[in-house]
Design a protein around this nucleic acid. Structure first.
Lengths: 256, 256
DNA sequence: CGCGCATTTGAGGACTGTCAACTTCCGTGG
DNA sequence: CCACGGAAGTTGACAGTCCTCAAATGCGCG
């Protein structure tokens, strides 16, 4: 592993407060691995032997039941995933696959659990990460149970605008069929939802979405700090303030 | 606080592995409080000063948006709640209210965070609790995004049967309008869902539900270990194997 | 015994999913 | 550089699911 990569890992909030010895123990058995696009890293039900740290690229977490599939989350650098399974030494509840070429640091689960026993501050950092993830999922459930598809899309656009501190134009970070599944609808329905938002100040041009009337969109979306995380803090999985948002392959492609 | 209550708390998985000193620190500032039924303990958005441990009664966690409300979880003894908010010292994302008379142990959040710094084993126990809660929410999201209302109800009945290791008759633990909201539907729809299950070996008699054809119900429900937690282990919030399931007021009332 | 709330049932409408056809976009290979 | 094939995205028709409103029924508590 290159020193540069080690530095990037050292800077993660998960290790920020940990003792140097803890960091050494955890990263001793770790290895950096590159995966091509559309590669399944892990199927749901598989035993989880590693904590995954996404350093480059995008990863999709999804779940399956009865021949149907739903996207649970899209991860972007730098985020960890499968931490809950690692802490409990349990099977994965979601499958993970790369959406593009990825660099992923794989840390043995044993090392994580050992480090937690040795270093209370590291164990607290793990707790904070899990607590942030927990709260992110609570927000997701409220989003799905309390809002319609159009409302979820409207809020997603506002969240994108806020996270990318962009102007009146935001860029979708992944394909619309994936966004549709993440938002809990079909691709056809997402298309109609975009059409419905035209009356509320939104025009679509491929992966570019122009918000021509923010007030109108917010009037429809009614964003709520108890559901939408528009001021990302450390710890949450879905949104990471440190992420280099224009770095992904797909966005380079989609840029015009 | 009575020694009996202290013993009950000591026996919780959260404190099971903690050092005696940790236990003393955490419970020193704690106080046991009784609440009548239908009492709101906390509104979403409120600052969270205590970790709550439910020792007796039932508590509902719910979220609100745009004049609509949805039940997120029903807690039964012995479970903790608001742990994620305590760990992050953050505001509550859900409101909490008692469904019946409750005994709740309130532990200052400061004490929890201090104990985590002092005792790595306690911090690990907190991590395991949060990881279990996280995985429970992942299951909930898969349940909602991949299944229809009737399928969610069918699986809920099978989960009840499994958790209460009952025979062919299970008893609902709370009012149907609350169950409806928990399952993400209206009371009218839950009523129709029960009617639809008649064709799959289910008959309803007030709070009693008779499963006359388990095979037929399972054929419809298609329970999945990656969604439904039919073999409850420690750590999860929604289901706790240690709970005395027939103790609640509502069940005593509903029994015939 | 009677009031109030939970539950049920019915009718109608809104939202969402499925299927099919068409268009657009993109990567590949000539 | 261009043409082509395949996948993604869009649009329309239709069906299924779910919600809303309204009214009737049942049940528990005072």
């Amino acid at each position: 592993m290159r020193p540069t990569d080690l530095d990037r890992v050292r800077g993660l909030h998960l290790f920020g407060q940990a003792a140097p010895e803890t960091f050494r123990v955890a990263t001793a058995g770790a290895h950096l691995q590159r995966f091509p696009a559309n590669t399944t890293l892990l199927f749901e039900g598989d035993t989880v032997d590693f904590l995954y740290m996404l350093l480059e690229g995008q990863v999709e977490l999804h779940g399956t039941w009865n021949d149907h599939e739903t996207v649970m989350a899209i991860l972007r650098p730098v985020s960890s995933f499968l931490l809950a399974a690692v802490v409990l030494d349990a099977d994965a509840l979601m499958s993970a696959r790369t959406l593009e070429r990825c660099e992923i640091l794989m840390i043995p689960g044993d090392a994580i659990r050992t480090a937690m026993q040795l270093d209370a501050r590291f164990a607290m950092a793990v707790s904070r990460d899990l607590a942030g993830g927990y709260r992110g999922l609570v927000r997701t459930i409220k989003n799905h149970k309390l809002r319609s598809g159009v409302e979820r899309l409207a809020n997603h656009l506002l969240a994108l605008r806020s996270a990318d501190n962009a102007g009146s134009t935001v860029r979708l970070h992944y394909e619309k069929r994936i966004l549709a599944s993440l938002l809990g609808m079909t691709p056809e329905n997402l298309s109609r939802a975009f059409a419905a938002l035209q009356a509320h100040g939104v025009t679509v041009e491929g992966a570019l979405v122009h918000i021509t009337n923010i007030a109108a969109l917010e009037a429809l979306a009614k964003p709520d700090p108890l559901i939408d995380n528009h001021a990302p803090r450390g710890g949450d999985i879905l949104i990471d303030a440190d992420a280099e948002i224009w770095s992904s392959e797909w966005n380079r492609k989609a840029r015009r």
